[in-house]
């Protein structure tokens, strides 16, 4: 934070990790590796964006997936019903998510602590049940893309790579944004709110606006990623778009890596998804995947609540410069 122009090892290390994950499948054009990286990158975007609200601002949301789901739906609707080009659909998905956060923000961010967490569960369920009834979005059956839509991107196979390159870009952008926010005046305001919201108000932070801005900032990328995921998937349904479990998994990733740091959510997302991938494919754990994940989460919560990166930063002060 000291010198604007100085070398930022924390940023470069974070970007390098994400870039490495992103580039890994590209030289060999390996579709299986691509799927692995794709899942990890989506998790990185989700965790990094939620971290702005949870890690920097101190508001724990169980409804992060709402933005992903709504963005996905808006994008799919435009792609399917209006044959909108993918970039436009992605932007529209992000805008819709940001708009929802803006509209909700002032109202629900009044609630603190567990009440905020509860209302976000309510928002997620209200959205899911509403979309299940909303005819333009296909009600309970959702929206399935016609195969011809992929023609514009050189067929389905090519389209998958287009989606992949886009997600790599979004993940890099997300990490950059997370770093810039953390080291900005806005970020200092958010962390002040996290530490003591009443004191923050007395110090002159316009808390309702600052919190709403953080909420909007955390919503946009999930909205964009939702479009990519469901475009790749070919269809979107209410149950997939607004799965409460996704929000909670994202929280787990942040806890695993360390909340409030830039690197934490990246490592948490990578660790969680790799572990999950291993459990799902392992013959022993295939059926016990949820159990193992639950035990892992419990152990983190009980024994290292600061997460891996937080723990390292506490233990080794010199790491604070590198692990931003």
């Amino acid at each position: 934070m000291n010198k604007i122009a100085s070398f930022h090892p924390g940023l470069w290390l974070a970007l390098a990790v994400v870039a490495a994950i992103g580039i890994w499948p590209i030289p060999a054009q390996d579709a299986a590796l691509r799927e692995v990286s794709f899942t990890v990158l989506i998790a990185i975007v989700m965790a990094t964006s939620l971290n702005v609200l949870m890690g920097y601002t101190g508001y724990v949301s169980f409804g992060h997936v709402v933005f992903y789901g709504l963005g996905g739906y808006v994008g799919m609707y435009l792609l399917n019903d209006y044959h909108a080009p993918l970039p436009l659909a992605i932007l529209a998905g992000g805008a819709a998510a940001g708009l929802l956060a803006f509209l909700l923000g002032k109202a629900i961010l009044k609630l603190r602590g567990a009440y905020f967490a509860l209302v976000t569960i309510g928002v997620n369920e209200a959205m899911r049940t509403f979309i299940s009834n909303f005819e333009p979005f296909g009600a309970s059956t959702g929206i399935a893309l016609q195969f011809s839509v992929y023609g514009a991107y050189g067929g389905a196979k090519q389209a998958l790579w287009v989606v992949y390159y886009t997600i790599v870009g979004l993940a890099l952008f997300g990490v950059l944004a997370s770093y810039l926010i953390r080291h900005s005046k806005f970020g200092l305001g958010l962390m002040t709110i996290r530490e003591d919201e009443d004191a923050a108000e007395v110090m002159g932070i316009v808390t309702p606006n600052t919190k709403t801005l953080a909420f909007v900032a955390s919503a946009i990328l999930p909205g964009m990623v939702g479009v990519l995921f469901f475009f790749k998937n070919g269809n979107v349904e209410p149950g997939d778009a607004f799965r409460l479990g996704v929000s909670i998994e994202t929280l787990v990733m942040i806890m695993l890596g360390g909340q409030g740091t830039v690197m934490g959510p990246i490592l948490g997302a990578l660790g969680y998804q790799r572990l999950r991938g291993f459990l799902l494919t392992s013959p022993i754990f295939k059926n016990a995947q949820l159990v193992v994940a639950g035990i892992l989460l419990l152990l983190i919560v009980l024994f290292i609540p600061a997460g891996a990166v937080g723990w390292l930063r506490q233990r080794f002060a010199w790491l604070r410069k590198v692990l931003a």
Binding site: L188, G189, T192, E195, A199, M203, I205
Partner: peptide, 17 residues
């Protein structure tokens, strides 16, 4: 602001006053 540094604490005062 416990988890912020001494310097960041004072900076917050200057930034938002």
């Amino acid at each position: 602001l416990k988890d912020l540094t001494v310097r960041e604490n004072i900076m917050a005062g200057a930034c938002f006053g």
